[in-house]
Design a protein around this nucleic acid. Structure first.
Lengths: 202, 202
DNA sequence: CCGTACCAAGCAAACGATTGGTAGGGTAGG
DNA sequence: CCTACCCTACCAATCGTTTGCTTGGTACGG
């Protein structure tokens, strides 16, 4: 054999594995309700041994959130930069969000449930900035759509933003990755409800 | 004066006051993050003194949730029994929900954030039944509306239920009772978005 | 091919702080 | 004198975290 393995840091895998376990527990039981012993049990080690990989429980939550947010904003930014038509941009934002829910389910559940409390610690102050960019992207797309005539002129952009943000992202509570409903299917149906409404056309 | 007070149990007031304080803290910081000392501090007493009124922290959460749920279902049941037209029933359900968010803000925040964890304790098993009736009321109204032609025939009732449930109830995260936006105003705008959609009609 | 050195990984045991909860006594108002 | 209410003082359990140490493996010099 010419070569065996790339010189990958050997402990990166274990870190990621532990983070994945922790994210699942945080999402399921809540951050405060999950003890470091729970995480260690799930990993088959003792609680103290976790501190060989992370210097605190907070660090784990931090790393989980950052990884997910990086992922999401990479997608979001690409969409608004690439797509000039606000209606198509809106559709792709919804789609990207459901894809994120599918891929980073635990991290998003953690974010949805605990961000409000975590944000109060200075360590997680970056979440404020994250929220601002998040809002700018959605709100900007909606405002452009209203101005261009794609969306109703009497729409309150801010209210519409909150409306769609809550509907889409809280779906993490019931959506099951790998279940019968694919993220694409849910995304398509949600888009239809948001854009066309419940009312039947005569 | 012919009469002073109804023969109300004299400690009912203090109980209610303490519960209101506890609900506010539970809603703001989360159930697990709020200590009995926090609640006692807010009331100006010591933590041990709380146990003169309640036999546990769990009891407080229990009582807060039950009071709110009784309130809500009284309204919900009255609507579906009184109103036979599904479209009008739907509108009134949305309206009643926002009115509840306005009146029982803390209790609803507590329910939204902690129900999933609390439900796992047998003490809060009744939340499962509550959810069932809640779903039956909304889903039944939506299905009747689809059958009657008031709502789009191609609507997936279950998906529409989740959609509207999440949008409406998660508004508790940003809605501020007594703020600039009244519950009626938000309710009207949300109804317009749900029924007519974002898309502009040509 | 061996011996040495080093390292990631985990164990065993304990730490101080905080948690929900308890026991018993004091006091003010009806 | 009784009762609602609160206080003082404390407890056991659990929490996140630290410490000193052991293990298996890997790289390297001679």
């Amino acid at each position: 054999m010419p070569k065996t393995n790339p010189p990958a840091p050997p402990h990166r895998d274990r870190r990621a594995e532990l983070l994945s376990l922790a994210a699942g527990l945080f999402a399921e039981r809540g951050y405060k309700n999950t003890t470091v012993r729970d995480i260690a049990d799930a990993a088959g080690i003792l609680s103290g041994s976790l501190y060989h990989h992370f210097d605190s429980k907070e660090t784990m939550a931090d790393e989980i959130l950052r990884t997910f947010l990086d992922d999401l904003f990479r997608d979001y930014r690409a969409i608004v930069e690439r797509e000039s038509d606000p209606r198509r941009a809106f559709e792709q934002l919804v789609h990207a969000s459901f894809r994120a829910i599918d891929r980073n389910h635990s991290a998003i559940a953690l974010y949805q449930n605990e961000a409000k409390q975590l944000r109060q610690s200075p360590r997680f102050a970056y979440l404020d900035e994250t929220d601002r960019e998040f809002r700018d992207i959605w709100l900007g797309t909606l405002e452009k759509g209203i101005a261009s005539g794609a969306f109703r002129a009497d729409l309150d952009a801010m209210m519409a933003y909150r409306f769609v943000r809550d509907t889409v992202w809280v779906a993490v509570r019931w959506y099951v990755p790998g279940g019968k409903l694919t993220a694409e299917a849910v995304s398509a149906q949600y888009l239809s409800m948001i854009l066309e409404g419940f009312q039947s056309r005569e």
